[in-house]
């Protein structure tokens, strides 16, 4: 089943005398249960793409369909509902509410609009167990390590059983140990819970935990690589592709596999 379908997406900022094309006729799709990475050099349009899928930004043209819903016709309240019910977010800066306990941070999206699900506590216990947070539920974000905070953010993203999790540089603020641990948890969520994850990253090591990497450059689709073998091999191929992109290489076909 197709979860994300991006078709001819274009986003232009500025006015007619000073136009910047952030996304340029970008098209790709993500199927259910995939763990997809989005990579590209600075200014490639990764953040704009993420914001567009999150309905924080609106496209100039083209269409994005998530879980069968076209995002272009959404009103403000429909966008909020879509973000609440269909999306889960993991940000680079964690973006946890410092005044709330870990438990309250995780369950927060479910309490935005009544009624609160009856199984709120069950869901909390399940994801706390999955992400190893059981002993920290009554603590506050400032009392946790950076890696633990990001796991809380992951649990918050998962609690509403969303169709898609958007992760924006989730390991950007973590050291390598914490980053590896988080990525292992994300892989576990992807495999055990069959969660679809779209992760924006510029780090090849982080990207190597995905199943597929879509490379974009200058706002356009550049190439993609799919993991078929060991992670080390996949990592090497990502490095190769990065070298090609940064070296000004030509666009490759959509189905390079390693």
């Amino acid at each position: 089943m197709r979860v994300v379908d991006v078709a001819h997406l274009t986003k232009i900022y500025g006015h007619r005398l000073n136009r910047v094309t952030a996304l340029n006729d970008l098209s790709f799709h993500i199927d259910a249960g995939e763990f997809v990475g989005i990579m590209g050099p600075s200014g490639a349009g990764k953040s704009t793409l993420l914001n567009t899928i999150a309905t924080i930004d609106t496209p100039t043209s083209g269409e994005v369909i998530v879980a069968g819903q076209s995002l272009s016709q959404f009103s403000e309240s429909e966008s909020a509902r879509y973000r609440r019910e269909q999306l889960g977010f993991i940000f680079q800066e964690f973006n946890l509410i410092p005044d709330l306990t870990v438990a309250d941070n995780i369950t927060l999206p479910l309490t935005f609009v009544p009624p609160v699900p009856d199984d709120l506590d069950t869901r909390l216990a399940r994801f706390a167990h999955l992400l190893g947070l059981e002993s920290m539920l009554t603590r506050y974000p400032e009392q946790l390590s950076l890696g633990q905070r990001q796991r809380v953010a992951a649990a918050r993203a998962m609690i509403s059983n969303p169709a898609l999790i958007l992760a924006d540089e989730p390991t950007g603020s973590l050291d390598s140990m914490a980053a590896t641990e988080l990525l292992q948890y994300l892989t576990k969520l992807n495999l055990e819970e069959d969660v679809t994850i779209m992760m924006v990253t510029h780090d090849a090591f982080t990207a190597s935990f995905c199943n597929r990497i879509i490379f974009i450059r200058d706002g356009s689709y550049f190439a993609e690589v799919t993991r078929r073998g060991p992670r080390q091999q996949f990592f090497d191929s990502i490095i190769d592709m990065e070298a090609t992109i940064n070296g000004g290489g030509k666009r490759r076909g959509p189905s390079d596999t390693f």
């Binding site: 999150a54 924080i56 403000e76 309240s77 909020a80 509902r81 879509y82 973000r83 609440r84 019910e85 999306l87 977010f89 940000f91 973006n95 509410i97 927060l108 999206p109 935005f112 609009v113 918050r156």
Partner: peptide, 16 residues
């Protein structure tokens, strides 16, 4: 402002 942006991104309705 950042806290408000977070909860907006997480899907809290404007009315709330």
């Amino acid at each position: 402002r950042q806290s408000r942006q977070i909860i907006r991104a997480l899907g809290m309705p404007t009315r709330a």
